[in-house]
Design a protein around this nucleic acid. Structure first.
Lengths: 197, 197
DNA sequence: CAGCATCCGCTTTGATACTG
DNA sequence: CAGTATCAAAGCGGATGCTG
């Protein structure tokens, strides 16, 4: 990316990580740990292969990502965040948090990956043991510890959990709640949050 | 910006604010409050005028910025963050924090604005009453309350304050400290921080 | 002057194909 | 598996012009 040429901390950060795709690569490495090139491609659907190669080179040159040889007998290359790269966690976290209300809208062109949703749910309720599972037709099952599970279309389940849908509306949109409904309500942000985008 | 088409909170956030210049416009509005178009241009040196107009339209459409008529007799337009826009503060803050170590390097093409530095210094030491002043030839004076002032070339002063320079090296690089040196040392991050970029 | 819109050359991106 | 190569299309930067 062309430099902003500003003696400003935000601009200098964006000089390094402001390119298209760059922060999503960091997201993948934060959520999944060390990845192979192929894993990254799977977690970044739509990225051009040459761009991924370019970005990884840039990130390596910036000291954010390091390549390492995987232990035998795997014989492949792994990409991993350096300590400096891991310090981008608050950046990814704040973006994830700010974007949560936008999850109430799902377009039919949107790719879905389970680890993205797990990440979002941990951000939503850091003190609840949430886990997400996606199956092939886009249905989502979220387990709230062993107390409850919420299942249904991803958009509706997330709509309920980010507070954009009331329980009744979510049920009308195909969501079923098994187990303790109160456990689910602990997860949903308090009224007034999230602010409508 | 073209959508990433991912059902992920980070990707959806970047669909909205990931365009070039967009987060720097938000930075300006967070640091300075409501701004005129001309003020924004001054705070974003190098931006093409059509791009600024485009971005402001996009941000308005996304509910992040609102236009308002300035009270008479000024008769101009003010651009201001909406509540949803103000919630980007943690995003800007985390980027600013991550970028702090990069302030140890200043290129001679870098534009300098006092409010950028004031913002960075507040992030560096939220509990210290720091204020920054820049004069025309790029010299910087930082006041640590009434206890001390640090002055010299911007890069050297910031290098000292972000911990990239020892006091002796900073002095050799043209920095002078007036008043209580201990007050300055309170500001500088503890040893081992910042990590070398 | 404030707030844009238009035009144009250049760079970056996206899509696809190909390779060690 | 881990990338390169190629090329059309989109985005960006810089200059300039227009309108109230």
């Amino acid at each position: 990316m062309r430099s902003y040429d500003e003696y400003c901390s935000v601009a200098k950060a964006l000089d390094v990580v402001g390119d298209r795709w760059t922060l999503l690569i960091v997201r993948e490495l934060l959520l999944r740990g060390a990845c192979r090139y192929t894993d990254l491609r799977h977690g970044l659907p739509g990225i051009a292969s040459n761009l991924l190669a370019d970005r990884l080179r840039d990130l390596e040159a910036a000291g954010i990502v390091a390549k390492e040889a995987a232990p035998p007998p795997v014989a492949t290359t792994l990409f991993r965040l350096t300590p400096r790269g891991e310090q981008l966690d608050p950046v990814i976290d704040s973006l994830m948090r700010w974007g949560l209300p936008l999850m109430a809208e799902q377009r039919d062109t949107d790719a879905v990956r389970g680890h993205w949703l797990t990440g979002a749910l941990q951000t939503l309720a850091p003190n609840e043991p949430l886990s997400a599972e996606v199956d092939d037709d886009g249905a989502l099952r979220v387990a709230v510890g062993t107390d409850a599970t919420v299942s249904g279309p991803a958009r509706s389940v997330m709509g309920l959990l980010v507070g954009a849908l009331e329980l009744d509306d979510a049920r009308a949109a195909g969501v079923t709640v098994a187990g303790d409904v109160a456990a689910v309500k602990r997860v949903v942000p308090k009224d007034g949050w999230p602010p409508t985008p």
